[in-house]
């Protein structure tokens, strides 16, 4: 047993980290313009992220859940906008539907980043992100997969990195309740990993802020009330990570759905707690729109209820007990 990322997996995460650190992601989020978003998407795809959810016969790298959660964690740490999780889940959905026409048309393009796919999977995922910019929009109901038709303009999310659209069902593409369930599980896992990355970044910036921000003649990080809040945030995040890795390793086994839900609950609670701690430690500046960490604080709230609420996932764990 070796239950830690191997050297290659760590290198993959570090490479993504460096790539995204130099990409000025906050500016891309704030501008809301399609061009920079598409460029960022292509860069991520070139690094191999979307290929991790696409079989080799369709131009991908085969499904690699551990690498996938590693990537999603980094994308969360850098607050990458857009339907990343949705595209990953759509890849799993299209692959499992067994419709060769659909698979041949879309999977290679998902892998190489030329297709952005958005997906609504009501009731847990009622809206499709960036549906106006996506190359393909899917919506699911009663185990049936249809194209999704965006309605009107984007709804306003608390997180400026998310542009949700209402979609109405279009053409019927395929029937496949099992494929839908598999897509939901993989999406929830990817979302949990992304959320954990958001929480990690918020803890990092909060520690840095507490070390340098001075009040009463000393760094506020000297005060126990601040220390303990950040220590608790770390504890939560530290114990969500092994649940995510454990669920990734359970991909394809009959405990996958349960393990994903366990990971989603822990990641949602830990990342959200880290966000509230970050907000409190930063004081008023963290409550401003212009301060970059607030992008992560807002994303932490949005992701808590994305891809199944903590209550939904607790209920799934309880059902498995």
């Amino acid at each position: 047993m070796k239950f830690v990322l191997d050297a290659e997996q760590r290198l993959f995460g570090d490479t993504l980290d460096k790539l995204l650190a130099g990409a000025d992601v906050p500016a891309t989020v704030r501008s809301g313009a399609a061009g920079p978003r598409r460029a960022l998407w292509s860069a991520i795809a070139r690094a191999g992220v979307f290929a991790l959810a696409v079989p080799e016969r369709h131009g991908g790298a085969g499904t690699h859940p551990v690498e996938l959660v590693t990537a999603m964690h980094e994308l969360g740490r850098h607050a990458v906008p857009g339907p990343i999780v949705e595209t990953v889940a759509a890849a799993a959905l299209i692959d499992r539907l067994g419709d060769t026409g659909l698979a041949d048309a879309w999977l290679p393009r998902i892998a190489d980043g030329t297709a952005v796919v958005s997906l609504a999977l009501p009731p847990a995922v009622p809206h499709a992100l960036d549906a106006d910019l996506a190359d393909l929009v899917l919506t699911v109901g009663d185990g049936r997969v249809r194209t999704g038709v965006p309605e009107g303009t984007a709804l306003t999310s608390l997180d400026p990195g998310r542009r949700p659209f209402r979609v109405s069902p279009g053409d019927l593409l395929a029937d496949g309740p099992e494929a839908v369930a598999a897509a939901y599980d993989l999406g929830a896992l990817a979302c949990a990993a992304q959320h954990l990355g958001v929480g990690r970044r918020l803890l990092e910036v909060s520690v840095e802020y507490a070390r340098t921000r001075r009040q009463f003649g000393r760094p506020i990080g000297e005060f126990q009330a601040v220390k303990h809040r950040l220590a608790d945030a770390l504890v939560g995040l530290e114990f969500a990570r092994p649940l995510i890795h454990g669920a990734a390793l359970a991909h394809g086994s009959d405990t996958f759905a349960r393990d994903v839900s366990a990971a989603k609950v822990a990641a949602a609670d830990a990342a959200y707690a880290a966000a509230l701690a970050a907000l409190q430690v930063h004081g008023a500046i963290g409550y401003t729109d212009e301060y970059d960490p607030s992008l992560w604080i807002r994303k932490a709230r949005a992701l808590r209820s994305a891809w199944g609420s903590p209550a939904d996932h607790r209920a799934r764990v309880a059902a498995a007990l």
């Binding site: 047993m1 239950f3 990570r241 092994p242 454990g246 366990a262 609950v265 822990a266 764990v317 007990l321």
Partner: peptide
């Protein structure tokens, strides 16, 4: 009583987390 059910699920999730963290710790 879904509130109590959620606490049971949470306790189970946290015990699983501690188990997996143990495997992580000894793998380091």
């Amino acid at each position: 009583d879904t509130a109590l059910r959620d606490r049971v699920a949470d306790a189970w999730i946290r015990a699983r987390a501690y188990r997996l963290k143990g495997f992580e710790t000894i793998s380091r």
